[in-house]
């Protein structure tokens, strides 16, 4: 991670401000550059701006001021078609999961792959793999409201990871998980990262960000307060 502008960055923020009406400042002059394949932890207290930053990356929110580039596209000037392509490159695991209650676990996870017209067999194989990896065997045909919060969270992560996205954003991915299931999630993230996925993980969990040799950015009141190199305790979570 490099706070300086970088031509090779996959995600770049230049003096980004986000103010929610009437005058709630979520982000203030935030600049960052993340290279492809990096892992970045975003930490900070609730309301520090972590979720807002993730939402800006996937263009769910528009900045009040500043420039955001993702995968080489200026999100402020991007065409609708390119916006769709950029979004297809991003997997997002939301804090509130955003699972569709009418669809089964299988159908929820299949969504990003269906959008990109992935062959049904590939979808089936990928979903079976993800369900196994995240300890969700036998849950494919269940509706999300029949699952525990921890299981719902893992389904949301499976959906974010389904399409091998070049960028994966995870908002509190282990917030509802016990240690054992957190490790499964981390193992999956590490696997994706080895395949080239850039990971940006917003978390409160010190065990998570202190266990990996990744960049940690702390946000406070919408600004980065410090950055440091995490201790390389377990390099890939494996």
């Amino acid at each position: 991670m490099n706070v300086q502008q970088s031509k090779t960055a996959i995600i770049e923020f230049i003096k980004v401000n986000k103010i929610y009406p009437p005058d709630v400042i979520a982000l203030r002059d935030v600049s960052l550059a993340i290279k492809p394949g990096e892992i970045v932890f975003l930490t900070g207290m609730s309301g520090a701006g972590k979720t807002t930053l993730l939402k800006l990356i996937c263009a769910m929110e528009q900045p009040t001021k500043g420039l955001i580039e993702v995968a080489g596209h200026d999100l402020g000037r991007i065409s609708l078609k390119n916006m769709q392509l950029v979004r297809q490159k991003i997997g997002m695991a939301y804090q509130d999961f955003k699972l569709l209650p009418k669809l089964t676990v299988y159908q929820n996870i299949a969504m990003p792959m269906e959008i990109t017209f992935t062959p049904p067999k590939t979808i089936r194989d990928r979903i079976n793999y993800l369900l196994d990896t995240l300890n969700l065997h036998g849950k494919a045909d269940i509706k999300p409201d029949k699952l525990s919060r921890g299981e719902q969270q893992r389904v949301a992560i499976a959906r974010a990871a389904a399409n091998y996205p070049p960028i994966l954003l995870a908002d509190e991915p282990t917030g509802n998980l016990d240690r054992e299931n957190s490790d499964l999630v981390i193992k999956l993230f590490a696997q994706l990262n080895r395949a080239g996925t850039t990971l940006i993980i917003a978390t409160h969990d010190p065990v998570l960000y202190k266990s990996y040799p990744a960049q940690t950015l702390e946000l406070s009141q919408g600004q980065f307060v410090f950055k440091d190199q995490a201790t390389p305790k377990t390099a890939t979570g494996e």
Partner: peptide, 16 residues
């Protein structure tokens, strides 16, 4: 609406 919104965020095209 919720499903369409999520599909939109995931990058579904207009025609999809």
């Amino acid at each position: 609406n919720d499903e369409l919104e999520i599909l939109h965020i995931l990058g579904a095209s207009k025609s999809y």
